[in-house]
Structures are given as structure tokens and as C-alpha cells.
Amino acid sequence: MVERGERAKHGLIQLLLAINAVVMLYPLVVMVLSAFKSNAELFASPFALPESFAFTNAARVWNETSFVRYLLNSTLVTAAAIAGILVFGTMAAYAIARYPFPGRSAVFLFFLSGLMVPLKLAIIPLFIQLGAMGLIDTRAGLVLVYIAMGLPSAVFIMTGFLRTLPGELEESARIEGASEARVMLSIMLPLARPALVITGIQNAVPIWNDFFFPLVFITTDALKTLPQGLTVFMGEYNTDWGVLFAGLTLAALPITLVYIVLSRQFIAGMTQGAIK
């Protein structure tokens, strides 16, 4: 009896998960299928499979719009920001975690306090600041703001991790005459790879997806990032739904593919960022 009750319950749970999966996936499936449809087809038979899987709409997105340009800008900005966050963040974390120096806890606290600041609300001074530095409407300005946004959590995670590494490795390398830089780069950092991956993913996803900062800082079309470019393009083609769905599909494709390959790291990175 217990067995049967348990099995019925499991069936119910599986049903709940199945319904949830349909609710999550069906909109995305429709998005992809609609990318292959013409307007007439979309409006007449929204639920059917497309008549053909021709890449007409996708080709128009690729050739007629600045999509490739936006994609390139997003890649460039995200890569540069992540590099900056990882390099600067790890350097600072290494100093805090491995060396005693006066003011160490104050420095750590300074970085930590950044965790609490929603930088969006400081957008007006940031705008003025970047303007004064000649960085408004440049990708470099955007990158610097993203680095600043990512540093607190990077320093926090990396410090926590670097603190746990044993001191013996470091000492024996020093006795053999290795410089401090050598100890850090070839002994300690290779051990920190898992924490670097978590930090990288945790920052890369919100930066890749960000829309707010480009909206304020970037006005030149050739410098726009993908989410921002998408708003331009959705306005221009608003009567051509097949092209719109193709644009959305293409925009969602890169991160979805990376996510499917690295789902474990994505989930760990994004939720661990929250469970600080």
C-alpha cells in the first residue's frame, strides 16, 4: 500500500515537472519555429511547424541589420570586462588573502561594501564622470563600469578561496628562491582555477545580458551591444514578425549554447553569487 501511494506521489511530481518543462520550453520552441515562417504563415498557422526550414529570415537579420556588429561589440565588451575583473580582482584578493599588511581589513571592507551598492542608482554621477574622462559613448567606458561592478564579488569569492590554500607550498617555493610574483602565478593561481571559473561565469552572464548601461552610455549605432541593438532592430522591423523572431533566436543562441554545455558551472556560478 505504501509502495503504491509513493508511486502515485512520484507520478504527480513527475507530472508537475513535465508541465513546468513545457511552460519553460514551449515559448522558446515557438520562437525558434517562428523564425522560419513568413508573416502570412505566422498569422494563419501560429502553432504549426514551418512549411520549410529556409534561413530567409535569419539571412535578412544577418545581412540587412547591424546584428553582426552588435554581436561583436557584446563579445568584445564582455571579454574585456571579464579579463579585467579576473585579473584585478584576483590581484587584490591575493594581496588580502596571503599577506598581512596594515589596513588589510579596511581594504577588504571597502570592496565588500561594493556588494551592497546597486550601481544603477549612481548612474547620473557615472554619466558625468565618464563624460569628464571622455569615455561616454565608448566601449572602454562601458568596460570600466562593468569591471567596477564585478570587482566586489570577485574579490570576495577569490579572497575566500585563496585563504584556504595551504601555506607550505608557498613557503617551500620561497625557500627555493622563487620571487613573490612567481609564487603567485605558477604555484597558487593554478590551484584557484575552479574559483576563477565561478567568478567568471557569475559576472559574464549579467554583463553579456546588460541593457541599462549601454542604454545610457552608448549612442553610436556601431558601438551598441546585442541587447541594446535588439531594441533598434525590433523597432525597424516591427511589421515583419518572422524577421523579429529570427533576430530573437539569433540573439538567444550564443548564450543558450554555452549554457547547455556548461549548465552545471552556470547554475553553480549564478546561484553561489547569491549565496554569499
Partner: peptide, 22 residues
């Protein structure tokens, strides 16, 4: 100092100062 400087400069310019200025 070399390890700390870049992160501190970026944080000061783009987090601490803007926040106070706001």
C-alpha cells in the same frame, strides 16, 4: 601595493565616488 592598486583605483573612480556624488 601593485596588487591592490588597479582594483582600488577602479572601485574609487566608478563606485565610491559616484555613490557619494549621487
Amino acid at each position: 601595493a601593485f596588487l591592490l592598486a588597479p582594483a582600488l583605483v577602479v572601485m574609487t573612480l566608478f563606485v565610491a565616488w559616484p555613490l557619494l556624488a549621487a
